[in-house]
Design a protein around this nucleic acid. Sequence first.
DNA 1: CGAACGGTACGACCAAAGTCGAACTTTCCG
DNA 2: CGGAAAGTTCGACTTTGGTCGTACCGTTCG
Lengths: 117, 117
Amino acid sequence: MTEVIEPAIETVTIDVVLSALADPVRLTLVRALDTAGDWTCGSDILKEAGVTIGKSTVSHHIKVLRDAGLIRTRVDGIRRLVTLRYDDLEQRFPGLLAMLREHTAARATAAAPTSSA
Amino acid sequence: MTEVIEPAIETVTIDVVLSALADPVRLTLVRALDTAGDWTCGSDILKEAGVTIGKSTVSHHIKVLRDAGLIRTRVDGIRRLVTLRYDDLEQRFPGLLAMLREHTAARATAAAPTSSA
DNA sequence: CGAACGGTACGACCAAAGTCGAACTTTCCG
DNA sequence: CGGAAAGTTCGACTTTGGTCGTACCGTTCG
């Protein structure tokens, strides 16, 4: 076998995609994948992005993203290559990846007004 | 006063928007608002959508959506009118609302993963 | 004025989700 | 064959955040 099970793109709902993207670690990972292309858990694009978590946690997030239809995992000998499902995502949710790309690392969250009066 | 404080659209990050949309109740509410236009908490578009929650919970979700920059609340006498920030959202996240609209109520979550083996 | 209505604020509760460490699996290689 | 490398699985812990009830505030109207 050379592929890990993933959902058919037609069965992917935006509800699940939004939930998957709602976690900061996963969002960081998706953005990094978009930039880096193929990736293995061992590589430290996450650490470079300031995220330091255990490998079982990484594995968990990978699974969530895969189940949500966002990424694909191919088995390559001793390791697994992870990639974004560009074409599938563009077909089903056109513009979504571009949106994430454009609004990357918008760390301007500081400004938060709120409260009524 | 006729407006409740809301964040300027330039300060709204997609991270926060995604988190706000990741909850099923809020997603239902946003979709209903998109269809219904102006709305007050008293009106039962939520119940019609099959969501029955207490009014303090509704208030909480409204606040989350407002803080995330998705909706606007105007004070009209004894009640508050809630609307989507169509223009602001279209300016900052073009296509986002259309995407939610198009993938409304995709209740096909049952679906099976494509198996390989 | 005072009661009723529409909604918010606060605190407590509980379920869902993120995190970790350790054990296990598979593959590669000496 | 045995050991190391790369990930996954499992169970337990902790944090997050959705929910509720109640108290509270501002507005309208009798």
